[in-house]
Design a protein around this nucleic acid. Structure first.
Lengths: 180, 180
DNA sequence: CAAGTGTGTGAGTGCACACTTACAAACAAG
DNA sequence: CTTGTTTGTAAGTGTGCACTCACACACTTG
């Protein structure tokens, strides 16, 4: 049974990302993530230092998964040009967030950046992803900026459910965004 | 004293935007907006149908102010080309969100779109703004999309406090964004 | 087997907060 | 002045939830 606690932490973290993604930090009781993880609320509190510690750790797990996916995507690029590599990264990201948990968790995390620990976790996450994108794709500042701008646009499209809106303005905002 | 209630609603709504902007829907008690507005909590509940009604009404007020600012900005455009009009609109928006309340409220609203009434309010807000931008600037779908993508990027820059980060990746993301 | 260590929980505790109700003062109309 | 309406509040009420603690089972080590 050695070190099962560490294994627990990993599974709890992944379920925490999914559960927090739906209603956010303040609206989801830790009972909810405990139940989803199949353990008691008390044990979650033993595994993590309070609800905030759990959320911050979940943010780390979330950005880890995103960074891994983008790094893997870069490997599948057809060529070496910034455009090709960025395109491959974008495709990998689009594929990853198809289930929406990772995207919605990012939105929830950004909403509670008034908590310093969360703000730092968000910065750390984007630091990792952005530095990798910039160095790996050898992209210009403007290209990196555009990459993230359209990534953030996805947040709006998904949270507002714009794929379901047939009106022209919504079609304009969602045009060309990969499989939403 | 006739119809002071309606005037109250307006002032409460504007303070509600500011107060909700800081910590979001679930983390701000209606006591907080009541205190900021200088009235009792009980009266807020009489003026609006529950906390949710207050938040949805505040969202309406928030998007009204944004739409008004962008419409006014469009009037100040130097020329009639889509680029010039979009630039003027962007400038007006940048100026408006200098105090951050309107920007942060949008982030908070997007975070609670799991509540259908909020999702509809967000859609209604973007419907108004996006249709105006598209028709007034006579911009292409791609231009409108880019306009909103970089608007969403501002959400990330502000919530994560990227203006304060001197590292290259953060400089790339904030490059050229007007006075943050 | 006894003692220790790590994994796990049930049953609280206390507090914050959404919402209500009963009541009061200001003002208007007859 | 009385009656009615609107603006406003103080003082609850009930509930949900973060966090704790005492306790139990599993497994190891000597």
């Amino acid at each position: 049974m050695r070190s099962t606690a560490e294994a627990r932490r990993v599974t709890v973290l992944n379920t925490a990302v999914s559960v927090f993604a739906r209603a956010g930090f303040h609206a989801t009781p830790v009972t909810a993530v405990a139940a989803a993880a199949g353990i008691s609320e008390a044990y979650v509190f033993r595994l993590f230092s309070g609800k905030l510690g759990l959320f911050v750790a979940a943010a780390g797990a979330c950005f880890d998964r995103i960074a891994d996916a983008i790094e893997a995507g870069a490997e599948r690029a057809r060529g070496d040009s910034p455009e090709e590599v960025l395109d491959a990264m974008g495709g990998a990201y689009a594929e990853l967030i198809a289930d929406r948990d990772l995207l919605l968790f990012q939105v929830q995390a950004q909403a509670v950046t008034d908590i310093p620990e969360v703000a730092e976790a968000v910065r750390a996450g984007y630091r990792r992803v952005a530095t990798f994108v910039q160095s790996r794709a050898r992209a210009s500042d403007a290209q990196v900026q555009q990459f993230f701008a359209y990534g953030q646009l996805c947040h709006l499209i998904v949270t507002a459910g714009l794929e379901q809106v047939p009106e022209p303005w919504a079609r304009a905002l969602t045009a060309g965004i990969r499989h939403p």
